[in-house]
Amino acid sequence: MTNLLIILIAFLVIATLVQILRVGELLSEVRNLDVNKVTEKDNKTQSFLMGSVGILFLVSCVWQYFSWEHLMLPAASSEHGVTIDKLMAFTMILIIVVFFILHIILFYFLYKYRKGDHNDVAYYYPHNNKLELIWTIAPTIVLTVVILYGLSVWDQITNADTSKSQVIEVYGKQFDWMARYPGEDETLGSYNYKLVQGLNALGVDMQDEASLDDKLTRELHLVVDEPVLLKLRSQDIIHSAFLPHFRVQMNCVPGMSTQFAFTPTKTTSEMKEQEGDSFEYVLLCNKICGAAHYNMQMKVVVETQEEYDNWLSQKNTLSEKLITKK
């Protein structure tokens, strides 16, 4: 019944619209006007709208920035993140300036050069090679700076020295994360996907000596100011480990191991002081992976060496977990 009613109403709306348009067209036919011809009045109204809506649009952009700025991610909590933030600020300022200049010129021209009494003939101006050369070269110079700056930051991040980094494996699967710490031998044991079974969720090869003292955890704990190298793997499909506060993101791809090196610089408790008590670092999945993709997360804690050692020492090693249980 409601469906019928909806269809009926839609039908009536369309019929009304048709009639309104018909009336308008008949009236203008009587007055011998072409209803769809663009008149001088139209040009005036539309160019005025262009100017005013244009200004409103630019104002709303500024308004959005000031109302929502507090929702943006806080300053980076990692060493390389600070360089990314600087590059971001540089690029952002550049594009905001260009955005405003170009839009103001656009809306101003549209407002000023409407067809009308005073402006009936356009200025025939097909090209000017000098001008075109200038506005090819100017962006080229600006982009050279942007590219060189960007590449130097990228180079720093991807060529970070990892020889002293603490290696931690982050392992994604539908729909949660696990971390594996290498234990006292500082070496992660080898793995094979065919060994994934029950408690051995990561398929660690227990024949490998290095595996025995590895530890599996459901939280990722990091030591402040100590470099870390995340080794990323996936059990099933592509996931992406995204740690927005550290400006870290890398895909986890089944069949291969990827990595990302960084150094956290602020502890969780420092961040709580800065951002409020409810603050937590988080690692989230940022590659579409199925129904619960939106809730695939792992808590991340940055703490002092002492707190970290204390936390890790309470975790069972893999040999305790897997072998004694057998």
Binding site: Q46, F109, R114, V121, Y123, Y125
Partner: peptide, 14 residues
């Protein structure tokens, strides 16, 4: 830039 230059001193019909 070329679009903007086209609009410059045009006689725009909306």
């Amino acid at each position: 830039f070329n679009y903007l230059a086209t609009l410059w001193r045009a006689s725009i019909r909306f």
